[in-house]
Design a protein around this nucleic acid. Structure first.
Length: 468
RNA sequence: GGCGCGAUGGCCGAGUGGCUAGGCAGAGGUCUGCAAAACCUCGUACAGCGGUUCAAUUCCGCUUCGCGCCUCCA
């Protein structure tokens, strides 16, 4: 199947063609581990997960790298304030990050390189930039990238240097560089860095932020690779600088396709600590929402569109997922132990719609519409008794295949609770009452079971009972 | 100032120059002893004003409102 992506570089939807036939090489900007990640961060990671899964769905092997930024202003400041060595300060946040993405059913990448483990690679890269006349040292011993010496600076952000002007943030920059656009490759040690310092041929210091992504992506994926992703806010300056550093050093194209996801709003407002809507994953889970429900809300919008994350949407997700679970259960019962046969006509149509949707720049909302079309047709066929066991098995298999992309169908389903003996006895009594057509007693027992938190349903096959 | 994005029915959220997106909520119905589930039907949604067009929510312009980036924020 064909995949089309909106490439930020060209600002167009393009047919995706891997650079190499063996695998798609993917670099996804990861977390800065100075704190727990928030729900907006997870939107990006879930988007990247969907990308990875769609690539695999289309038959590609994927080699994904996600960096862990464990040295920068924020991690250093946090470690200082906590009175801990940098690595001890960041370790719990790295562990929390992996816990969190597991809760969201985000597939693991092949590599999670940490910046602090790749200082030598970064130093080598700076050396290459010096050789090509793209780096210079300032008086304080910091090394900067010379933007003026790199033609075409600004890609993929479409930034024209002449359009940059000194804003408030630039004025605050305390570093000694020649031009506004120049950015640090290596920062000379100062007292605020404490013991966070490495030796380099240009003196003691630490790497600039952008450098890690260039060094680590090239180490694990090669000097040119297929796809690079991140939040839209990373487009400039981060991705422009990465591109300049990498292409400046190698003379080769760095990334073929850039994908950027939009931000998240919460209840229509931008997320901020002062508004009190700055949620981490553990905040939401603490409020009783599951990772599965949160994932559903995050994938139910197109990645390039600002997503309004609301508690109403979470509640809707809960109901929707229950309906999907119900359908899966019905299919499983109908299929029994039969092998999958041919797909019914309506399922073939849904499959085509689903494949087109995910291939069309990861249009998951459209793919979900195909899913619900299948659910409706499938339920109708089940009601009518027109879906043979082999057909039910085939539809169930199709759902399982779709779930390799969505990751919400089988993941995190509530475990069926063990039925207490009390409920079991009431159910048996109710079955007897029903057999005797004692409806009043039957209804009374149903209410009694409901009080215990269980819901009874009468079906042609007898009573069904589950946690309400 | 530069670059860019958005405004869709109660809520979330796709998309399209004319043909039902979808989900949740709500109303009516079928089925059922009743209920639940499921299915069927139902909403004069496309910010405002102009323009192009046989036809615009969809294209163009303007306006209003909101958002992002412009040196270390997904």
């Amino acid at each position: 199947m064909n995949l089309y992506f909106y490439n930020t570089m060209s600002r167009q939807r393009e047919l995706f063609e891997p650079l190499s036939t063996d695998a798609v090489r993917l670099y996804t900007c990861g977390p800065t581990v100075y704190n727990y990640a928030h729900i907006g961060n997870f939107r990006a990671y879930v988007f990247e997960d969907i990308l990875r899964r769609v690539l695999q769905y289309a038959g590609h092997k994927v080699i994904q790298v996600m960096n862990l930024t464990d040295v920068d202003d924020k991690t250093i400041r946090g470690a200082q304030e906590a009175g801990l060595p940098l690595c001890e300060y960041t370790r719990p946040y790295i562990e929390a990050f992996f816990d969190d993405i597991r809760q969201l059913n985000v597939e693991k990448a092949e590599h999670y390189p940490a910046a602090t483990d790749h200082i030598p690679e970064m130093i080598t890269l700076i050396g290459r930039l010096f050789e090509r006349g793209l780096a210079y040292a300032s008086d304080d011993g910091s090394i900067y990238f010379n933007v003026a010496a790199f033609p075409g600076y600004g890609r993929p952000a479409h930034i024209d240097l002449s359009g940059l002007r000194a804003g408030a943030r630039v004025a605050q920059d305390e570093y000694d560089k020649e031009r506004i656009g120049d950015f640090a490759l290596w920062k000379a040690w100062d007292a605020d860095d404490g013991d966070v310092v490495w030796d380099s041929p240009w003196g003691r210091g630490r790497p600039g932020w952008h450098l890690e992504c260039s060094a680590m992506s090239m180490k694990y994926l090669g000097e040119s690779f297929d796809i690079h992703t991140g939040g839209i806010d990373n487009l400039f300056p981060h991705h422009a600088n990465e591109t300049a550093q990498s292409e400046g050093a190698t003379g080769k194209p760095f990334v073929k396709t850039w994908l950027h996801c939009a931000h998240l709003r919460i209840n229509g407002e931008k997320m901020s600590k002062s508004l009190g809507n700055f949620y981490t994953l553990r905040d939401l889970i603490g409020k009783g929402w599951s990772g599965r429900e949160i994932r559903y809300v995050l994938i139910n919008g197109h990645y390039r569109q600002t997503l309004n994350f609301t508690f109403d949407a979470l509640a809707a997700a809960r109901t929707t997922l229950a309906r999907l679970d119900e359908f899966s259960d019905r299919l499983a019962v109908a299929a029994g132990s039969n092998a999958a046969g041919g797909l019914p006509e309506w399922a073939v149509k849904a499959r085509t719609a689903f494949d087109e949707a995910v291939g069309d720049d990861l249009n998951i909302p459209e793919a979900l519409a195909a899913l619900f079309g299948l659910v409706r047709e499938g339920n109708a066929a089940l009601d009518a008794g027109s879906l043979p066991p082999a057909g039910a098995a085939a539809v169930a298999a199709l759902l399982a295949r779709w779930d390799t992309v969505l990751g919400v169908l089988s993941f995190g389903r509530p475990d069926p609770d063990a039925m207490p003996a009390e409920v079991r006895e009431l159910l048996e009594a109710r079955a007897a009452a029903r057999k005797a057509r004692e409806w009043g007693e039957s209804d009374r027992l149903r209410d009694a079971i409901a009080v215990l938190g269980w819901e009874v349903r009468d079906t042609p096959g007898g009573q069904q009972c589950k946690r309400a």
